[in-house]
Simulated assay, not measured.
Amino acid sequence: MALLSLNNIEVAYDQVFLAVRGVSIEVPERGLVALLGANGAGKSTVLKSISGLLKPERGAVNRGEITFDGRSILAIDPPDRVRLGIVHVLEGRRVFGHLTPRENLIAAATMHRDRGHVSALIDRMFQTFPRLAERAKAKAGYLSGGEQQMLAIARALMTEPRLLMLDEPSLGLAPFLVDEIFDIIRAINERDGVAVLLVEQNATAALEIAHSGYLIENGRILMGGTADVLRSNPDVADAYLGGHQKVDYHAVKHYRRRKRWLA
């Protein structure tokens, strides 16, 4: 049984704009799944439907079902979804800039009552992200983009999740930092057994670490399969696998699927 399952969900904003149409995806226990697509394809909306963050943006799941560990979660509030083991790292990092890395981590540990356990978790985060240990006394707002992304992931891991959802972790980062961030994501999945749902435009980097993936366009899932299957598809290669240094995202944004994708 899948840890996370979306069955034919439909998401609308303001009860008018249909952003996601009939999306069905699964994330296995300890799996690492990539959700690929261009800007505006519906990737972030899918994540927010899982974490429960649609309501502040006047969005709602109008149809379909989302289950986590066999339990429907649509009626569960976002804080309780975190307690179930679902955590969402939003696009843009959104760390608390006026706090230090340690204080950011402490702020995410309110669900833990044992101070000793919180201290052990912080030590584990600093071991996983040595750069944060080096900048432990700096204000998070003065960290580099890569360091802020590491902090955002570490802060999410303070909740000890079973499912880690990441929205565009490579956005705005230099290629060598992208490699470092993705190596850390793979290590978290393999070492700690945390399932990962990774939303990315950088399909090249995502498919290097993912076990499987889905391609979404205009709110619909067009293709799904193992990472090898997606990499070997010529249309995916032409549109998305130009490499993080060569890909023209403007062209990707306006790409339209070819007929053989429907075959």
Rank of each mutant, 00 (worst) to 15 (best):
E147T: 15
T100D: 10
G145Y: 14
Y13G: 00
Y13F: 09
P175D: 07
A251Q: 12
E217N: 13
T128V: 09
P234A: 10
V95L: 02
T100G: 06
L177I: 10
G64N: 11
A12K: 14
T159R: 06
L262Q: 05
G37H: 15
F126Q: 02
I25E: 08
I184P: 01
D179W: 00
V82I: 03
G64W: 10
L18F: 05
R115P: 10
T45E: 07
L171S: 09
M111K: 03
A38F: 01
G146A: 00
G219T: 10
F182V: 02
L157G: 13
Y142E: 11
A205P: 10
A140W: 00
H254I: 08
P169Y: 11
E147Q: 15
V247A: 06
G92E: 04
Y240E: 03
G85V: 04
V27D: 01
A2L: 08
R94Q: 08
P234V: 07
A154S: 12
T45I: 09
A195T: 01
K137N: 14
E160D: 11
G225N: 11
S44F: 03
A140V: 03
L143I: 07
S170M: 12
D167R: 11
G37F: 15
F17S: 05
D114A: 12
A34I: 15
N202V: 07
D238P: 10
I216C: 06
R135L: 07
F126W: 02
Q201G: 00
A107P: 11
L215Q: 06
M1D: 01
A138L: 13
H112C: 08
I106W: 06
V11Y: 02
I66C: 02
N62K: 15
R186M: 05
D80N: 14
V95S: 04
L215M: 13
S119I: 03
N218I: 11
R256I: 09
T67N: 08
T226L: 02
Q15M: 10
R257I: 14
E190W: 04
Q201P: 02
N7G: 12
V95Q: 03
L164I: 14
I184N: 00
E147G: 15
A227T: 04
K55Y: 03
A60M: 10
V95E: 01
H254C: 09
A75P: 03
F96G: 09
H250I: 01
G52A: 01
H117G: 10
R220H: 04
Q245C: 01
P101I: 15
A227S: 13
A195H: 00
R124Q: 04
V252G: 04
G40T: 07
V247I: 15
S72E: 14
L4T: 08
V252I: 07
N62P: 05
D235Y: 13
V20Y: 00
E180Y: 02
L105W: 00
A140N: 01
L157S: 13
F176A: 11
G42I: 11
M125Y: 03
G145H: 14
H117N: 11
S24R: 12
I50L: 00
A41M: 14
R58Y: 06
V252E: 04
D77V: 02
I153N: 14
A174M: 06
E26G: 03
P175W: 13
S24F: 10
Q127H: 05
S49D: 04
V82W: 00
I153L: 15
A187Y: 02
N39V: 09
N7H: 07
A237E: 12
